[in-house]
């Protein structure tokens, strides 16, 4: 049984290096080295097909790269992807561009990650309602997940990730195909995540920061990441 961590107050800092991936003899990621902290709010840019989603899936423990090194602590030093997979899955939560909601209600979806963690029904229910408040959709609790709009699905998926309190949430093009209203709502939800000290990486092919107060930009071009720090908008 996995112990649920409700606070990320202590934060998390990991160093990932030597990330390489070749697919069909084409270099997707080349010797990537990044340091990620749960204070980070990163905008990851790059053209379509530049490998942004691939990078996120690798660090979320969902896709095996050709090589990978994780340095976290004395115990977790120079670890391969295979041996870091569990750690990555525990601390990083990946959201697809079009999130997948399981069949069932919105409640079932948000409660999914809370089951088998030693919580009783009342605690799960409390957390689910708290998550629905976060995304301002408490009235949808019993709604069939398949009938939600694209924007609502995205926000429910964010709430479903938030509720398990990972150290990082990785959002893959969350604003693609979203109208202005949904985009505005989603900005508000993401800003809320920041207040909970959850590290966020958002990919976009559009380098504009919108209403989000990123502290860093990573640009992926021909398999190589270049970084720049932003000055705070606040």
């Amino acid at each position: 049984m996995t112990e649920l961590k409700y606070t990320t107050a202590e934060g998390l800092k990991v160093q990932l290096d030597n990330i390489n991936l070749c697919k069909n003899k084409q270099i997707i990621l080349q010797n990537i080295q990044v340091t990620l902290s749960s204070d980070d709010f990163i905008l990851m840019t790059g053209q379509n097909g530049s490998g942004k989603s691939t990078f996120l899936k690798i660090i979320a423990g969902l896709l095996k790269p050709d090589s990978f090194n994780l340095n976290y602590s004395e115990q977790l030093k120079n670890n391969s992807w295979q041996s870091s997979k569990k750690f990555l899955r525990q601390h990083f939560c990946y959201l697809h561009q079009t999130p997948y909601l399981f069949s069932g209600s919105v409640y079932d979806n948000i409660a999914y990650g809370l089951k088998y963690r030693g919580l009783n029904k009342a605690e799960i229910s409390h957390k689910v309602h708290e998550a629905l408040e976060l995304i301002s959709l408490p009235h949808l609790v019993q709604r069939n997940s398949q009938v939600l709009s694209g924007g609502e699905k995205q926000r429910v998926a964010i709430a479903r990730s938030w509720v398990i309190q990972p150290n990082f949430i990785l959002l893959d093009e969350p604003f693609a195909n979203m109208d202005k209203h949904s985009r505005h709502r989603t900005y508000a939800t993401i800003n809320q995540l920041k207040e909970d000290n959850i590290g966020i990486i958002i990919t976009s092919h559009d380098p504009h920061r919108g209403e989000l107060d990123f502290n860093k930009q990573m640009h992926l071009y021909q398999g190589i990441i270049s970084e720049k720090e932003y000055e705070s908008n606040a």
């Binding site: 996995t2 899936k57 979320a60 423990g61 969902l62 899955r89 525990q90 990083f92 939560c93 990946y94 959201l95 697809h96 079009t98 999130p99 997948y100 399981f102 069949s103 999914y112 990650g113 088998y116 963690r117 479903r160 990730s161 398990i164």
Partner: peptide
């Protein structure tokens, strides 16, 4: 995405397997 979602939400692969079967 069903499998990946189950895994990224902290499911053990065995639970993710049953989630995919349910879907």
């Amino acid at each position: 995405r069903a499998w990946e979602t189950a895994i990224t939400l902290g499911s053990h692969p065995a639970r993710a397997f049953f989630t995919v079967l349910k879907e």
